[in-house]
Design a protein around this nucleic acid. Structure first.
Lengths: 200, 200
DNA sequence: CCCTTGTTTCAGAAATTTCTGAAATATATG
DNA sequence: CATATATTTCAGAAATTTCTGAAACAAGGG
């Protein structure tokens, strides 16, 4: 490995964290190198900098492209592919959210939907289905919210994030200004999830 | 494996998905069984139902406890530990979010903070540090938002989720009612990211 | 104490994932 | 079409993770 000190340390960290993020060490490291590089790099640059095999680099880049976290760039009079990360951090955040949802949530949601179609054979099945149904509703609520929020342009998103929980007081204020009739039309009756959870 | 059909299918799915969620097959399956079980189960119940070794169950339960996704229950006149999942789904969602943040975000944030303290040795380092700083700011913005939202009681949270992107129009409305001066102080200018890759 | 019942630990076996080098493929150029 | 350059594939090697059975540990009676 041959990298300036700060980059080096950043790259190692991404290598270690890779596992927790659902990618392997090399994939994490390659992403880190590209992320910090001022200009696009070709596969052999990555081989040199990380000291891993050419084929490993090739497969890892492939995976990063599947995640839409790197893209290729071509230069005139050069037959090699070069790779770079989008430099808009917000775009990266959105891509990560989309891809993780696709891999971690969507398959489960559709499997649960299938299970809700099955005819229960026993009391046990009936209980399971009830629980599965509640779970599915919650997932659908969360993903609808996500889809909705994800449509906002970045500056509006930024505004909401900066507001944080204060939105609720802002909404309360609005209610007071308008009378609460208007809000009722915007909020839907809350789905119920009850249980003998702990008193907080 | 000896489970009624719907539970069976749910459990297999959680086993397969386990890997994507950062746990292994057995951990995923055990969680799934406990989640669907109407009453708490002891370790040997899990051995029977999943056909894995006793020690595997023991280690997997330990991991699920580290995640705070299962808790133990004792019954009078029985020396065995029994295990169950919280049945309030919102509590589960919150726990998942907290634990994943702790494992996936926090270590990176603190490493990036360390890297920002280093004295840059070269232009390359300076560029890397700039990029790292932007990343850290974004992470901090997101985690502040998360901490803030996470404080809300579940019914308020539910209200926000149901509103989705409509909050922004609600806020716009509030602005119109109040005059826009108030909001300006809450939004920040969007971070700029420019770059031009040039051929080597 | 010494059973009995239940849980945890841990070294090594088994399974899976990652990585490599060599061969195959693709594509531009003379 | 032959050559040079670049990339991808893939079978097996290497590394890592998961899982097991046996042994150690813990705790409640008798």
């Amino acid at each position: 490995m041959d990298l300036p000190p700060i980059t080096q340390s950043f790259v190692s960290h991404f290598g270690e964290m890779g596992a927790r993020w659902g990618v392997n060490r090399t994939v994490g490291q390659i992403y880190a190198v590209l992320f910090l590089s001022p200009d696009p790099l070709c596969a052999d640059d990555l081989v040199d900098r990380l000291g891993v095999s050419r084929s490993n680099v090739s497969m890892s880049l492939r995976e990063l492209q599947a995640w839409r976290l790197v893209r290729t760039v071509r230069f005139p009079d050069d037959r090699r592919d070069f790779f770079e990360t989008p430099d808009d951090l917000w775009k990266i955040v959105r891509t990560l959210a989309e891809e993780r949802k696709k891999r971690e949530i969507d398959p489960t949601a559709s499997r649960l939907r299938e299970l809700m179609m099955e005819a229960p054979q026993s009391d046990h099945d009936r209980h399971a289905q009830k629980r599965i149904g509640e779970t599915l509703e919650l997932i659908e609520l969360l993903t609808r919210w996500y889809d909705d929020i994800n449509k906002l342009e970045t500056d509006r998103l930024l505004m909401l994030l900066a507001l944080g929980a204060k939105v609720t007081s802002a909404l309360d204020l609005k209610d007071r200004l308008l009378g609460s009739a208007a809000r009722k039309t915007l909020t839907e009756p809350a789905p119920e999830h009850d249980s003998e959870g702990d008193p907080k």
